[in-house]
Structures are given as structure tokens and as C-alpha cells.
Design a protein around this nucleic acid. Structure first.
Length: 278
DNA sequence: GCCAACGTTGGC
DNA sequence: GCCAACGTTGGC
């Protein structure tokens, strides 16, 4: 028997054969190199092998995927991360051959042909999100202190709101492949098709205060860091007054307006060229 | 088998 | 560039 995951909220009571939903982060930068796989690229090629997953937790999810399961296509590592498209897993896990190619940026000498360490699935483009769903919006909804939807998002229902709150985007942000609950999938679809929010009104939550630095003056070992973090989190608890305050929507009228279409097009804004080119 | 260290990754 | 989460690795 196999655990579908470890002790997290996902897989408690669901039937093992139920459809899973996933989220794929299309990073633009890998090991310092620009990869540039945008939603435009994805739409153009339609089906793409999801190469280059080199994170164990992400790989484990990859191996769990089945053909036909739905996925969110997410732009990460960019100015305005968020969900840009809907997709489908079209081929289940098979060895990621780029790990065997020593000239490839995804090369990993520890992966052997007879014992592959990394896997990929094929992902097929289904549709573009009618409205790009930015992480900031999801965070805004997740941050609301109430279980009920914020004004303007009543259609999500309490179920949708709590599903968004539980998304791994917030607790496991660095994971580039994530599991998505059916309720969260539905909520994202609703957001994407409804649109109409005023992004400039959503205040980005400020950086959390870092109290640890002062208490750990010397260069701490990694373990010490971990411990410090953990205890800090425990001490901090959830829902301080400051946090509540952050949840208030503020009008921000002077937000830079420069980026519009390219926000969601994802291709890097054309770097101003020095005219030249002979 | 425990547990510290490592490696990966992305938001800020 | 820092921080964070966590599966895996490796020393013992």
C-alpha cells in the first residue's frame, strides 16, 4: 500500500481513484539561465514535456499524476506571478532524459539510464485563463480573516475561500509542482472566468518583520536556523493584529501602470535597446 | 534509526 | 540576496 502523501490535509478521506488536480510553475529562470516558457509558448506548442523538475517533493507528485488530470499553468519567477492557463496531463511520468545529457542545464550525474532519478509528464494546453489570476489576488483572498468571501467574491462561497486558504502556494511556495484540491481548482476557474477585480486596490502584504536576526548574532548552523525559525513561528502564532490590519483593502491609485498586456503575456518586456544595430 | 546538513525553488 | 519548506542524503 502506498501513501499518497504525508500527513497533510490533501488525502485524508478521498477515494484513491479520484481525479487529482495539479499546479505547474513555469519558471523563467533555471540556474541563472532564462528559460522563458510563457503561456504564449505553451499555447503555441500545445503539448510539452515538463522537463527539469529537480525537486524531490515535486518529483513525487509528478509520479503520482495520471493522464487526463487537470492542471493549472502558473507563471513563477517573474514580476507578476500567477495562473495563466488551464492544462491537462496528457502522458504520465516517464524518465526525464535531460538529466542524462551533460551539456544540458538540467543535467544530473546521479540519474542513471538504468535507474532514472527524475521524471516528467507531458502537459497539454487547454485554455488560457480569460483573466490572469495573480498570486496577489489569491493571497488577498487567503488573507481575509473571515471564512466568508471578501466583498466582490461572494461567488466563491465559503468553500472556495477556505480552499484557496489551503493552497500550497502559500505554505509551500517554493514547490514548483503542487497538488490542488478540487475546490481550489473550481475557485480558480471561477476567478479566471469572472475577472473584474481591481488589482491596484489589493495591497501587497508587507514583508513580515524579521525578529530572528538579533537573537542569533553568530553564524548559526543550518539546524540552529531551522530551530530558530520554528520557535519563532510558534511564538508568532497566527492572526496578530497587524496581520488583520494588512488584510484591509487599500486604494493605491499611484501604482505603476506601465505594465499591462505584458503582465500576462509573460515575455520579458523588451529591453530598451540602445538604438544601434548598425 | 536518528538527526543535521544539503539541495531545490520562488516570493519578496 | 535572504528566507522558508521539506524530501533526501549521509555520518554516526
Amino acid at each position: 500500500m502506498r501513501h499518497c502523501c504525508t500527513s497533510r490535509h490533501h488525502c485524508t478521506a478521498e477515494t484513491p481513484s479520484s481525479t487529482n488536480y495539479w499546479l505547474f510553475k513555469a519558471s523563467r529562470i533555471v540556474k541563472g539561465k532564462e528559460i522563458k516558457f510563457s503561456v504564449d509558448d505553451f499555447e503555441a506548442v500545445t503539448t510539452t514535456p515538463w522537463k527539469g523538475v529537480r525537486h524531490y517533493a515535486a518529483r513525487n507528485l509528478i509520479k503520482e499524476m495520471k493522464a487526463g488530470e487537470k492542471a493549472l499553468f502558473y507563471h513563477s519567477n517573474c514580476k507578476d506571478p500567477g495562473i495563466a492557463a488551464f492544462a491537462e496531463v496528457s502522458k504520465e511520468a516517464y524518465p526525464d532524459h535531460t538529466a542524462w545529457d551533460c551539456s544540458h542545464p538540467y543535467y544530473d550525474p546521479k540519474s542513471k539510464q538504468n535507474d532514472p532519478k527524475w521524471f516528467m509528464v507531458d502537459l497539454t494546453f487547454e485554455s488560457r485563463a480569460q483573466n490572469f489570476v495573480p498570486l496577489t489576488l489569491l493571497r488577498f483572498i487567503a488573507d481575509s480573516s473571515s471564512v466568508s468571501p471578501p466583498t466582490g467574491f461572494e461567488y466563491l462561497g465559503d468553500v472556495g475561500v477556505s480552499a484557496i486558504k489551503e493552497m500550497d502556494l502559500f505554505t509551500r511556495g517554493c514547490l514548483n509542482v503542487q497538488r490542488v484540491s478540487e475546490a481550489a481548482w473550481t475557485a480558480v476557474q471561477q476567478l479566471a472566468s469572472t475577472g473584474g477585480w481591481d488589482l491596484s486596490a489589493k495591497k501587497r502584504s508587507p514583508r513580515k518583520p524579521t525578529a530572528a536576526k538579533t537573537s542569533v548574532p553568530e553564524r548559526p548552523t543550518r539546524a540552529a536556523k531551522t530551530k530558530a525559525r520554528t520557535s519563532m513561528q510558534q511564538a508568532k502564532g497566527r492572526g496578530s493584529e497587524e496581520e488583520l490590519e494588512e488584510k484591509v483593502i487599500r486604494r493605491v491609485t499611484s501604482l505603476p501602470q506601465k505594465r499591462k498586456a505584458e503582465d500576462y503575456g509573460e515575455l520579458p518586456p523588451p529591453r530598451r535597446r540602445a538604438r544601434a544595430s548598425v
